[in-house]
Every structure is written in C-alpha cells, then in structure tokens.
C-alpha cells in the first residue's frame, strides 16, 4: 500500500493533468461508490446510521464475505468455483448432525468435522482442475450438483434443528460486543489480505493467474497452487456453512442455493479480473459491503426485492466497465 501511494506521488509530480483525476476515479471508483451509497442512505433513511442497523448489515454480509474472500483466491488464479453453496449446505448439515440429540458432541469437534468435509470437497474439485486439467467451470458445476445431492442424502431431505447452545454461539454470540460471525469474517479477510499481499504463497497465486506458462517457467508448482486455492475455498465454504447454520439455528438441505453468485459478484465488483492475476482482498471487502448495503438500504427504503436484483445486476456491469476503463488507462 505504501508503495502505491509513493508511486502516485511521483507520477503526480510529473504530470498533474486531468487524466490523473480520471485515473484516480478509475482506481478507487468502487470505494467512492461505497461512500456515495452510505451518504445517500444516511440522508434518505433515519434508521440507516444507527449502530443496530450497521451491526445488522455486517452480520448479514458476513457469510457472503467469508465466501467472497475464498472466491478471490480462486478467481485470482483464473478459476471459478460454482460449488460453494452446496459445500456450505453439506458442511452445515454435517456440523449440525453432530450437535443434536441427547448426547451432542462438542461444538469444536463438530466444527472441525465440518471444516474437514469442506476441505475434502474443495480438494476433489482441485484434483480434477489441477491434475486432470478439466475446466474449473465444468468441474465445480458438477460438484454443485453432486454435493447438493450428498447433502440431501445425508439429511434425508430433512432440516436439522435443536442445536446445542455451544454451537449456536458461533452464529448468535458476540465477542467484545461484536457478533461472532462478523469477527470471523473480519479475521478471515485480514488473514487473507496478509497472505495475498505479503507472503510468497500470495505472490505465487498472482503469478499463476497472471500467466500460467510464465509461472511454470519460474519454477512455481502451478498445479499445487491451483489445487490449494480450491481446498482453501472448501475450507472457507465450510466456515460459512457452520456459521450460517448456527445463526439460523438449523441446517437446511436447501441452504446456500445461488450463494456462489453473490460471492462472485462481490469479487467482480471489487475489480478482481476474471482472467486472473489482478485484484485483491480489500476491494473484495468493499464489493461485499456494497452488495450488503444495497440489500439493506433498499429494504429500509421499502423498495421491493425485485428491484434490488435489477440494481445489483446493473452494479456488476458498472463495476466491470470501471475495471475496463482502468485497464485501458494502464495499456
């Protein structure tokens, strides 16, 4: 971050033209958009800028936020994962099944089991994509269906409720006054940001997405990196799965349907390139917040959820347009 400001400072000293203003807008357009949305909502609705409502927004976005963080890794390598909604449902179900009945297991064990299932599901996709070299879109589309099926088989199509209170803490408890789910989202995003921006592994993720052949030439284990991002996505899908289950106090076999679309939307709104190699966590978080605020704000304003979908769609296209302008600038 410090380097980019330094770079801008130098470039600015060289030519302070109208063009640089446009460049600034192109680079931070999404952040500006977020600011404008906050501003507009605070003017339009008295209920918006209350701590209760803002906490509510954060709690609502935390699930999509955790998924979007994982999706950022996947998309940075030039891949995609459509199966996350199904993995979320299966892992939530596995976790829930261990904390019901007269002798529930410890919530820790349940969570670890769910996370393990998530990693295995992600690893399955990863093996087919990295080593068998099938397109990620197709593999994860298959997983979307297969894992949903496994969820239905495992649950026999029935929801699981009456979870132990220890488990429900994950979705309903607070930590220092902040909902646990929000803390989990924050911690996930922070860790992911550090990994992508400051570690060797992060650099390699960018390298694989930026140019796979160059990455191979540079001695990077390209298949290993690709495999790892899907396994990580599985892990984070499971984290989202148990959190959602704990929050809704029940595991539903139909949980998480179409969640992959919101996660992808957040990543794309944040400016991560679908071809890989460009993007990052901070702007993904902005993307997550924009989607969450739009949903919340439009609810507050009493606008039908039908319109909300239209607005979200336009937002995605607008984000890609901004991104395109930015790259035209860079070329």
């Amino acid at each position: 971050m410090t380097t980019s400001t330094k770079q801008m400072g130098r470039a600015g000293a060289r030519s302070r033209t109208l063009g640089s203003l446009g460049q600034l807008f192109a680079r931070y357009g999404i952040v500006i958009a977020l600011g404008l949305i906050v501003l507009a909502l605070s003017v339009l609705s008295d209920n918006f800028l209350t701590s209760g409502n803002l906490t509510n927004v954060l709690r609502q976005v935390s699930i999509n936020g955790i998924l979007a963080v994982g999706m950022t890794f996947v998309i940075l390598t030039g891949g995609i994962d459509l199966s996350i909604g199904s993995v979320l449902a299966l892992t939530g179900m596995v976790g829930a099944s261990l904390v019901v009945g007269s002798k529930p297991h410890s919530p820790i064990l349940a969570i670890l089991a769910a996370l393990a299932v998530g990693v295995v599901a992600g690893a399955c996709s990863g093996i087919f994509i990295a080593w068998v070299r099938l397109p990620a879109f197709v593999v994860t589309l298959g997983m979307l269906s297969a894992v949903r099926g496994l969820t239905l088989i495992y649950s026999q199509g029935m929801p699981i409720s009456n979870l132990s209170s220890g488990f429900k803490f994950l979705g309903q408890g607070t930590f220092l006054g902040i909902p646990v789910s929000v803390v989990l989202f924050g911690a996930t995003a922070l860790a992911a940001w550090v990994v992508l921006a400051y570690t060797v592994y992060g650099r390699r993720v960018y390298a694989v997405g930026g140019n796979m052949r160059s990455a191979h030439t540079c001695g990077i284990n390209v298949r290993g990196i690709i495999f790892s991002v899907y396994a990580l996505m599985g892990l984070l899908s499971a984290l989202a799965g148990v959190t959602l289950t704990a929050r809704t106090t029940a595991a539903l076999p139909q949980a998480g349907v179409a969640y992959e679309l919101d996660a992808i939307a957040a990543v794309v709104i944040g400016g991560t390139s679908l071809t890989g190699g460009i993007g990052g966590i901070p702007l993904t978080v902005v993307g997550v917040l924009i989607i969450g605020l739009l949903n919340n704000g439009l609810d507050l304003l009493g606008i039908s959820s039908y319109y909300q979908q239209v607005i979200k769609g336009l937002m995605i296209v607008a984000a890609v347009l901004i991104d395109k302008a930015r790259h035209a600038d860079a070329a």
Partner: peptide, 20 residues
C-alpha cells in the same frame, strides 16, 4: 507468453524466482 507477468510490476517480475 512464457516469461513475463505483464500486468505486474517490474519489481515483482524480477523477484519472483528468488522470493524464498
């Protein structure tokens, strides 16, 4: 096609093989 990472910085392109 098989050497550079065009959208990345000169610094990151140079350091990639010696990151460890």
């Amino acid at each position: 096609a098989s050497g550079l990472f065009l959208s990345q910085s000169v610094r990151k392109n140079i350091s990639l093989t010696s990151l460890s």
